[in-house]
Simulated assay, not measured.
Amino acid sequence: MTATVPEASPVAVRPQRILIATDTYPPDVNGAAYFTHRLATGLAARGGDVHVVCASDDGRPRTERVDGVVLHRLRSARLLVHPTMRVAVPAGLGRTVDRLIERIEPDVVHTQGHFVVGRAAVGAARRGGVPVVATNHFMPDNLFQFAHIPAGLRDRVGTLAWRDFSRVFARADHVTTPTPIAAGLLTGKGFGREVEPVSCGIDLRRFRPQPRAWARLHFGVPERPTILFVGRLDEEKRLEELVRALPKVRNQLDAQVVLVGTGNQRESLELLADRIGVGEHVRFLGFVPDAELPQVYSVADVFAMPGVAELQSIATLEAMASGLPVVAADAMALPHLVDGNGFLYRPGEVAELAAHLTTVLGDEELRASMGRASLALAAGHDHQRSLARFEQIYLEVASR
């Protein structure tokens, strides 16, 4: 008689448990905050058990579940050098994150920076024996205007900032940054570890070509050739170049500039536009909620990015996924996003910027061709591919 072998019970496999550490998270408005939110919610939607530790948006420490992610908001105070951001209170932060890691038992800690929360999380993970993945979104240029660093001291301060970055990120098991150029920047600044480029990615289901007439009516944008910028109205975005280019474009076309976002340069940009005679043709839409952001790209005929401190530029990717041609500064990682879908110009060369904008706006067939090229390039940055790569990285570091 043959003995019956009982069937083995299936072994339950729990989802990856990831603790993402970040100094900036919505409602903060910046590229790193948006990327971290998309990373956290995207991983959660794919079945991950995702926790985020970040500064409280109102000062009060609390834990809450938002968009499928468990947020651990730390006690915070206003950041004196920034008009809106808050910073986690450093006193006792290491012990707080130690206890958090002990309670959550994450498979991996993924830090998005090397400042207060990121630094504490790396230290706590090392003490707790948890592997660390680190993604860099930092350039000193992003901080100079807020810290009021004089121009003559910026090189020296930048060198010290990069050394501090290297000390923290050298403790990670795996380091990423959005683009090959950004990875090369870290190597050039003396960071001795291998850095993997992993695109921030773009949600191609949300950002896609949409009807222009409805968008212009909704946002109150007049019917004329339109140049769009989306992002912070801050110093490193160099938006004065875009405003100064507009009169040269208007010598040939009845064009306008639409600026979406907030920042400390708005008043000076308004004054500049009035002084050079284009005040009525530079429109400030201010903050646009995330739910309406995909529609705002549809008001435009071309997207302009004059910034010189872009490690990838999520806004440019969103514009490309929306089918827009791009005119961008030939600086940092922006050349990675311009290949048959627009033009690069030398930073500071306003006449060159104006000439490229005029060419795109004045040629409907060229504009359509470049729009198709933008869509093709954006398809290579589908954020599902980025999420899958991060999941693979987490498994790799956890198995070591």
Rank of each mutant, 00 (worst) to 15 (best):
A3V: 08
T4D: 11
P6R: 09
P6D: 06
E7W: 12
P15Y: 08
Q16R: 09
A21Y: 01
P26Q: 13
N30M: 03
G31T: 08
A33N: 03
A33C: 07
F35V: 07
R38A: 00
A45H: 02
D49K: 02
A55H: 01
E64I: 12
E64Y: 02
R65T: 02
V69I: 07
V69E: 01
V70D: 04
L74M: 11
L79T: 10
V81H: 15
A88M: 11
A91Q: 15
G92F: 05
G92K: 07
D98G: 14
H110T: 01
G113D: 08
H114W: 13
H114V: 05
V116W: 10
V116P: 03
G118S: 11
G118Q: 05
A120G: 02
A120V: 08
A120N: 06
V122H: 12
G123I: 02
A125S: 07
G128I: 00
G128Y: 07
V130C: 04
P131Q: 04
T135F: 12
H148W: 10
I149T: 15
I149A: 15
A151G: 09
G152H: 14
L153G: 07
D155Q: 09
V157E: 13
G158D: 10
T159K: 12
W162I: 04
W162P: 08
W162D: 03
D164W: 11
D164H: 12
D164Q: 08
V168S: 10
V168A: 10
V175H: 11
L185T: 09
G188V: 04
F191R: 01
G192E: 13
E194R: 10
S199D: 14
S199G: 04
R206A: 15
F207S: 06
F207V: 11
R208Y: 15
Q210M: 15
P211L: 11
W214D: 13
A215R: 03
R216A: 03
L217P: 01
L217H: 12
H218N: 07
F229T: 04
L239S: 10
E240I: 05
P247Y: 12
N251I: 06
Q252I: 00
T262V: 12
R266L: 13
L271H: 15
L272R: 10
G277S: 05
G279E: 00
H281S: 06
V282R: 09
F284W: 07
L285E: 13
L285G: 06
P289F: 11
P294G: 09
Q295S: 05
V296N: 02
V299I: 14
A300H: 05
D301H: 12
F303P: 01
G307Q: 06
G307Y: 01
V308T: 15
A315H: 03
A315V: 03
T316R: 02
A319E: 04
A321W: 12
G323L: 04
V326D: 02
V326I: 08
A331E: 04
A331K: 10
M332T: 00
P335S: 13
D339I: 02
D339C: 11
P347I: 04
P347C: 14
L353F: 06
T358F: 08
S369D: 03
A373P: 01
L377S: 05
G380N: 14
E391T: 03
Y394D: 01
Y394S: 00
V397S: 12
